[in-house]
Design a protein around this nucleic acid. Structure first.
Lengths: 329, 329
DNA sequence: CTGAAAGCGCTTACAG
DNA sequence: CTGAAAGCGCTTACAG
């Protein structure tokens, strides 16, 4: 069997309670006693069993993370941000993929409760009533990340998608684009759909231009390429394209090139996310950079504050976005 | 307080032991009793506390995963494969990033022990003696994923990197390339270095050609582009390039285009991994596709077998690789 | 500053 | 087929 706190206590000639105290620093222990305990720990190679500790203290130092899919680069980077901060605060993470299925998300909240995590960082598409109920029933602090609660009931960390779309559009109108196409997500999507369209529409209207929106049911390269290739053959040529992800941005560039349109001379292309993909295409993509890693990091830091009852300044944190101008515009 | 197994027992008019039995199916329970218990569970909305269960049973149904960096697409996809299989077997995963630092890896093995995970899936660069000791001391089953133990002491799931590099090289020699450049990882790297170079050298030698290896200290696009741009100005022009990752493959194509070399007419480019990146470049990349997701999935399945003492056919699993031929060759 | 004891919520022999 | 009881390895009031 492995060595327990009881073995350490005996070796050091003190009680388990005292060992626990030096381990956790929960009370003052005489220096000499502390040394004896530390020596015993060293000598026996003792490591505390976090499961037993979790049961006794009702804190597991574990945070649950529910995301649609870690294998999406955006998500993976966010998770990395979360994990780094978790490590900093000596937390571990339990990671789960939901494929953005509400049913699965609800199920996972149950699992997170069973595992007695201290909190859940959640990224998803839409927040249904059932899901909100599951949040409540789990009786766990939940922080949304890159996910919007339209009614602001759950704390969250996001960027201002509407403003970002406005900025992107404005950038093109100022470059004198007259026919700007928005390659958007579904109009009812709370992050890559509705707010992006809203910001776009606002800027387009201000410039006195006609709106032109193409909705992608998913944000994959192939899908965007296909959609756009058809659009470019059958419609008047746009002179500006805003794509709501880098993948779609690369698709836009390639669709233009395939159609014999020069980027940026005939069509200016701007995208979102500023993932590494943005520099791996010719011409390199101008993108709205979202602080993806930071969103994850800030969300996790937020969680540690909630857990430790530290005061939080804002309930809905909005991180600033940025624009990185490259060759495609 | 939340409802416990004790509450369920009382509600159903049975003992805790019986509730536990129907929960876990560890013993036969009379149908009628079972129904009473199930009803009570339903009525009270009971969920078992996995932490308590873990302490009592010494099994946490949790697998630790240690990877260099989830935000790397290759890794993220592998982790997804792991998680999917974990879900299938009702396991959760604790994910940690090591940045491939031995010290951190050792530290994490300790954390994994503290968390009492049932096993650890490990991906890293080199296996040092200290790390192997940490594996041993943790007394946990460990399965390596996309990571080689040269002495085969630890079970692992990999592809045959040497054969893959040989295949890629052979493909180019058969296309009549005479000056084939290998854009490789560090020669002492057990996956993207040494075996790749070995396979390459074998094929090059068979074709009676001269070897030409360029080592990248890291596999990032920028780094490869920079290295290659310099190589192309100062050296005789290669007519074939083998890049050990898709990122480097894209860098190769761009470096050629920048130098005014047509791909594939003047230079044929072949890469590794077949990530989504491979289709997001013009011309699209021919790549050796590694079953990344599958590697993760198989490693996790392997782990469940180890945990449940199921027989395993192979200690070192080699998954078949494949070649996807596209426009770049 | 330290110890004895109860308790966290389960599982698991042991009896019957 | 079922129950009583011990035990998993800790933490946490409670005393002193």
């Amino acid at each position: 069997m492995s060595v327990t706190i009881y073995d350490v206590a005996r070796e050091a000639g003190v009680s388990m309670a005292t060992v626990s105290r030096v381990l956790n620093g929960t009370a003052v222990v005489k220096d000499e006693t502390k040394r004896k305990v530390l020596d015993a720990i060293q000598a026996l190679g003792y490591r505390p069993n976090a499961v037993a500790r979790g049961l006794a203290s009702k804190k597991t130092k574990t945070i649950g993370i529910i995301v649609p899919d870690v294998s999406a680069p955006f998500v993976a980077e966010m998770v990395r941000g979360m994990e780094d901060i978790a490590t900093m605060y000596a937390y571990q993470i339990i990671l789960s993929n939901s494929d953005a299925q509400t049913e699965r998300e609800i199920d996972l909240m149950g699992t997170m409760w069973e595992k007695q995590v201290d909190g859940v960082l959640f990224m998803g598409d839409r927040l249904t009533a059932d899901l909100l109920k599951a949040f409540e029933e789990a009786q766990l602090p939940v922080v949304l990340c890159a996910t919007v609660d339209p009614e602001g009931r759950i704390p969250s960390v996001n960027i201002d998608s509407e403003q970002a779309a406005y900025d992107a559009t404005k950038f093109l109108t100022q470059k004198d684009c007259k026919n700007i196409l928005l390659l958007s997500g579904p109009s009812d999507h709370p992050v890559i759909g509705e707010p992006r369209q809203k910001g776009y529409l606002k800027a387009v209207k201000e410039a006195g231009l006609q709106a032109r929106i193409l909705e992608c049911s998913d944000l994959r390269y192939e899908h965007g390429l296909d959609l756009l290739q058809r659009e470019l053959t059958s419609n008047p040529q746009p002179d500006g394209i805003i794509a709501v992800s880098d993948e779609l941005g690369v698709a836009s560039i390639h669709a233009c090139l395939d159609a014999g349109l020069a980027v940026p001379d005939q069509v200016r292309v701007i995208a979102f996310d500023n993932t590494r993909l943005a520099i791996m295409v010719r011409p390199e993509l101008t993108t709205i950079s979202q602080p993806i890693y930071d969103m994850g990091a800030v969300a996790m830091r937020f969680m540690t504050k909630l857990i430790h009852d530290e005061p939080v300044e804002e309930f809905s944190v909005i991180l600033p976005h940025d624009m990185t101008v490259r060759k495609s515009t």
